[in-house]
Amino acid sequence: MKATRLAIPDVVLLEPTVYGDARGFFLESYNRRELGQVLGMQPEFVQDNHSRSARGVLRGLHYQVVRPQGKLVRVVRGAVFDVVVDIRRGSPTFGQWIGTELNADAHTQLWVPPGFAHGFLVLSESADFMYKTTDYYAPEHERCIAWDDPDLGIAWPDDVIPVLSEKDRRGAAFRNAELID
């Protein structure tokens, strides 16, 4: 597995070793020991999630203020533009964001530590998005930051018109959001 620390060093892009031939391919999508070695810590995952979304669906920017979740995210069908925002008040990268394309062909994954808001925009006709979390979903603690917040200035791909849920339409401005200390 190749691990690349991104502009926010706590966020890590993971590229698994893929073994392929005319029959297809094989890869380890999760190896506890190897992930712990590349991250320098061992996340404990408690929940797996799978969503399917049509082109243009934008989910996010979601996070939990209590019991924040670390996430190991990947796309198993299609492609998304994946975004994380550092919402840890004491962090040197507080308020900064990273966006990267994740797609099924590249098999890349992204480690999103606790303390980050997360979202994605579907670039393909549809996408299956899977992720492991380090804490359980707690709807009473879930919050949402507006995907188009001008203070964050996220450069979403402009060739896809976002389709939002009602919850995501009501996302808070970053400057007014309840964040993580």
Rank of each mutant, 00 (worst) to 15 (best):
G24M: 13
G24I: 01
F25D: 01
F25Y: 14
F26V: 01
F26D: 03
L27C: 10
L27N: 07
L27D: 01
E28Y: 01
E28A: 11
E28Q: 14
S29K: 06
S29P: 02
Y30L: 05
N31Q: 12
N31D: 14
N31F: 08
R32Y: 05
R32E: 14
R32Q: 13
R33E: 08
E34Q: 06
E34G: 06
E34H: 05
E34N: 01
L35S: 10
L35P: 09
L35G: 03
G36P: 12
G36E: 10
Q37T: 11
Q37N: 13
V38H: 01
V38K: 03
V38W: 04
L39M: 11
L39D: 10
L39R: 05
G40Q: 05
M41L: 15
M41S: 05
M41A: 09
Q42M: 03
Q42V: 08
Q42D: 11
P43K: 06
P43S: 02
P43T: 01
E44F: 09
E44K: 14
F45N: 14
F45I: 08
Q47I: 08
Q47N: 10
Q47P: 05
Q47C: 11
D48Y: 01
N49P: 05
H50N: 12
S51A: 13
S51T: 08
R52P: 06
R52K: 15
R52E: 11
S53P: 12
S53W: 14
S53H: 12
A54Y: 13
G56C: 00
G56K: 02
G56W: 03
V57K: 07
V57Q: 00
L58A: 12
L58I: 13
L58W: 02
G60H: 04
G60T: 02
L61Q: 04
L61E: 06
L61N: 00
L61W: 06
H62T: 10
H62N: 11
H62R: 02
H62I: 13
Y63H: 09
Y63P: 03
Q64R: 08
Q64Y: 03
V65P: 05
V65T: 15
V65G: 06
V66A: 04
V66C: 00
V66W: 00
R67C: 06
R67N: 11
R67M: 05
